[in-house]
Design a protein around this nucleic acid. Structure first.
Lengths: 269, 269
DNA sequence: TCATTCGAGTGAACGGCGTTAACTTACGCA
DNA sequence: TGCGTAAGTTAACGCCGTTCACTCGAATGA
């Protein structure tokens, strides 16, 4: 409504400056280097002044974490929007964008996807809310996958297998995204944990003893996972396919409805 | 040779007491709670005394990390040794032991498999050495996998695909374990990153928003990965198999030499 | 216009931290 | 028995988060 007052403008500017300083310290020196005194020093202030803007250092860091989730989500959405209409292409582009962001923003990735940080449990625990920054990131990945399942089909373990092994234990995920089918929920989690494992190991430097270029391994796994997901058996790894997945030219032609797991249906969204 | 002198005995006892106290603090309060002053307080000492035993707090924590690697490796080896001779059974038992250890020792898992810790880079970087605690843990997993590939066969993407995607980028891993074949190296890394992703997400509490019982998801993924690895096509998920993978009774009967990736060969170890 | 309110920022202080330096104590060995 | 030295102490330095009492200046209302 009313334009922000002068006070409010100054205030938001100061908040940004504090966060920028905190992020700079985080990137250059790790989480331990983020101290109120250091931030204030860089701003030409004293540490207690920051308490006018954040109730504690932990709250400031939680604010950073939320920002990073949003930044990552926007990056992923941008990648999706430039990938055309094919949901599989979108998922590939999004996965690559995810990895690129993590590798290019190690400290930020670590903050939101690594160890639980001492004061952030509360933030992490609120992940169930629909509008939690983390949940919104998840949604961005879930949607193309659901579309893929509905249109092109998705090869997953049969429902009886999933029922027996998982039952309703994926309920939190399924309910928070509009009653996902068990197959889609499982496919999402399987893919998510695989991508997470690869990126986290690369970012946390747990891969250097084994791989010289983690990106190549990432691409290989991406291709393998897609081949495993794709319904047509002749599309499996081994038919010479794989290297064309980067460009993905005429794959959609062969993507018939071999094992259409989730029949297309209206509504339920 | 000579029995340890009284001084030496006291010294090692004190070292153990320091490490025990540090671990207790780590478990109860996280890494930030591990402070020389707190350790010394619990021991009825003063903080500078610890410098007679460790050159710095970081060195003490690095020592803890090495201990944890060894403890985990011994746990995994014990699970392998009670799993019989089938290498696939061994791998399953080892994977479950890995997860159990991580879930039961969250702080310890976090220290060695989470964020790079500010003073541990040097320890992590030395992972290339054959006798690094982390490398030795890797070896424990590589060996049954290599055996499995040699005896029962292993379904992996064809060599041309791996060559094109990975080339010699897995050289560090392959060389440090007696010239592993590209297929086995890839299968190991694929499985390792998947298991790591699942366990890390569970331990780091990044799964609670989606799954109520992460163990069920772990078992599902284990079964899926095994089905994907097993050479016989009729063994794939969907043939009603899967739930018997926990006990794995007569699987070895069907494990023919369908796509024997690495022919059995003597030597080369 | 003037008085008042209140947000922003300061300086001092408390207790905690890792680490260093100088010092004392007591054990083990020749 | 004497000596060297390992083990432990106290004091101190400079960090840290946080609290409290305080000042200052800008916005606000009569």
């Amino acid at each position: 409504m009313t334009p922000p007052s002068r006070r409010e403008r100054l205030r938001t500017a100061t908040v940004s400056e504090i966060k920028d300083g905190a992020r700079r310290l985080l990137v250059t020196g790790g989480l331990d280097a983020v101290s109120l005194r250091a931030i204030a020093r860089d701003m030409g202030m004293t540490a207690p002044a920051i308490y006018r803007y954040f109730p504690s250092l932990e709250a400031l860091i939680a604010g950073l974490a939320a920002d990073f989730y949003d930044e990552l989500r926007q990056t992923v959405e941008a990648a999706r929007d430039t990938a055309g209409d094919d949901p599989l292409d979108q998922l590939l582009a999004m996965s690559r964008a995810f990895r690129r962001w993590g590798v290019g923003n190690r400290a930020e990735f670590t903050l939101i996807f690594g160890n639980p940080v001492p004061g952030l449990e509360e933030f992490t625990d609120a992940c169930g809310d629909e509008d939690h920054p983390g949940a919104r990131l998840g949604t961005v990945f879930v949607r193309p996958l659901a579309t893929l399942a509905a249109h092109a089909g998705l090869r997953t373990p049969p429902r009886e297998f999933l029922e027996e092994h998982l039952g309703d234990r994926l309920a939190p995920l399924r309910r928070s995204h509009g009653d996902l089918s068990l197959e889609v929920a499982y496919a999402f989690l399987s893919g998510w944990t695989r991508i997470y494992g690869l990126i986290a190991m690369e970012v946390f430097d747990h891969l250097r003893w084994a791989v010289t270029e983690p990106e190549a391994l990432f691409e290989t796994e991406l291709a393998a996972f897609v081949a495993q997901l794709s319904p047509a058996p002749e599309q499996q790894l081994g038919a010479g396919g794989g290297q064309q997945l980067g460009a993905a030219p005429e794959r959609s032609g062969a993507a018939g409805a071999t094992v259409r797991v989730t029949p297309p249906r209206a509504g339920s969204h």
